[in-house]
Simulated assay, not measured.
Amino acid sequence: MEEQTNIQKNNGKKSTGMLILIAVLAVVVIGVIIWGVGAVKEAHQEKILKEKQRTEFEAQLDSLMAIHNKIKVEYGQLSDSLAMKDSIIQARAREIKKMMNYKWEYYKIKKKLRALQKIAQGYVMQMDSLYTVNHALTKENHQIKEVLQQEKQKNAQLQSEKQQLKQKVEQASILHTYNFEVTAVHVTGAGRERKTDKVRRVSKIKVCFTVASNAVALPGNRTIYVRIARPDKKILVISDSEKYSFMFNGKRLQYSAKKTINYQNKAMDVCLSWPRRSTQELKPGLYHVDVFEGNYTIGQATLKLR
């Protein structure tokens, strides 16, 4: 009986131990489950945090590069001088983007992003400095151009005034004539000269005038040319040879008579004659006489023959 009682007591102890073991195992399992759920939740939250950080970094990077590229466009060709720095910025931006997509290291990415921001800020500062210098140079260049333009205008004005003065001096130095006397002359067999107004009796035509005094004109030898035109405007010439011609304002003209005088700024009388050749025909009517010196017509007169 006592032995049976001991057996029952032992069985009771075994059952209690088993219950305790089951209870401990249940607690452990529940703890593992709770820990697992917590770990999953934590991993999910960490994933959400990483995604949020990635989004923030991407936004910062995109904003930084958008501003950088906008600055490049705004500064135009001036940005070409900082092409090397721009290439560094572009390369680092690509490196950061690659790290965000394939290898997540929060503090490393954050550090690189901050470094990139500093480089970009330095780029802007250098660009502003270049712009300031370029603007100053452009302004200085504009001022220099304005000064040069003003000097050109002054020079042009001086040249114009000089040319006008030269023209005035040239005009003032032109010889002038007066007291014209144009006479048709008949030379007798005895060699005497007599005035005539009959075409058939004309042996020569004399043109006499006075050259006026002119203190401005250069003294020295002056060549006077006379052209006598018939009523039909044909010029009475000594010969058709080019030898009896002269240049007048770029044109070659035949002359009727020529004489070189020594002009000394005082009034002087001058006479020239056109000798008629036996083969030359004269016509009744009004003859026009023009006197030339240099590139100027210095006198005009007429002669009427019948």
Results as ranks from 00 to 15, higher is better:
53 Q>K: 06
76 G>V: 10
255 Y>E: 03
248 F>V: 02
129 S>K: 08
187 V>T: 15
90 Q>K: 14
163 Q>W: 09
104 W>L: 04
19 L>I: 04
3 E>P: 01
182 V>H: 02
155 N>P: 01
189 G>S: 15
181 E>S: 02
79 S>Y: 05
111 K>L: 15
278 S>W: 07
242 E>V: 11
135 H>R: 05
26 A>K: 01
207 V>R: 04
210 T>A: 14
135 H>G: 00
112 K>H: 07
254 Q>M: 13
83 A>R: 11
133 V>F: 13
285 G>K: 00
78 L>Q: 02
152 K>W: 09
58 E>H: 11
216 V>A: 03
45 Q>Y: 11
161 E>F: 11
101 N>R: 05
188 T>L: 07
286 L>E: 09
178 Y>G: 06
193 E>Q: 05
135 H>V: 03
6 N>M: 14
4 Q>K: 09
298 I>K: 02
65 M>P: 06
294 G>Q: 01
278 S>Y: 08
11 N>R: 07
259 K>Y: 08
55 T>V: 11
98 K>E: 11
187 V>H: 01
156 A>G: 01
67 I>K: 05
192 R>H: 15
92 R>D: 06
206 K>Q: 14
135 H>Q: 09
110 K>Y: 10
300 Q>V: 10
53 Q>F: 13
26 A>E: 03
141 N>Q: 07
173 S>F: 13
254 Q>P: 08
80 D>K: 05
177 T>N: 04
195 K>S: 14
241 S>H: 06
274 W>A: 00
124 V>G: 02
69 N>W: 13
68 H>A: 07
120 A>F: 01
160 S>H: 04
236 L>N: 02
305 L>N: 02
192 R>D: 15
40 V>G: 08
20 I>M: 12
236 L>S: 00
64 L>Q: 06
239 S>V: 04
227 R>S: 06
123 Y>I: 01
47 K>H: 14
200 R>Q: 15
281 E>C: 03
212 A>D: 15
29 V>Y: 09
247 M>K: 07
55 T>D: 09
220 G>Y: 06
203 S>L: 04
86 D>E: 12
95 E>K: 00
172 A>H: 04
63 S>F: 10
129 S>F: 13
299 G>H: 05
277 R>I: 05
7 I>N: 12
94 R>S: 10
187 V>M: 03
163 Q>C: 03
22 I>L: 15
148 L>A: 05
124 V>H: 06
219 P>A: 12
27 V>P: 05
131 Y>L: 09
251 K>D: 09
86 D>S: 11
184 A>K: 02
240 D>I: 06
174 I>F: 14
224 I>H: 03
238 I>F: 11
131 Y>C: 01
117 Q>R: 01
242 E>W: 12
178 Y>A: 08
11 N>E: 08
228 I>M: 10
258 K>T: 04
225 Y>T: 04
31 G>D: 14
70 K>T: 13
186 H>G: 03
268 M>Y: 04
142 H>L: 11
71 I>V: 14
229 A>E: 13
33 I>T: 12
180 F>T: 08
24 V>M: 11
299 G>N: 05
261 I>S: 02
221 N>K: 10
239 S>I: 06
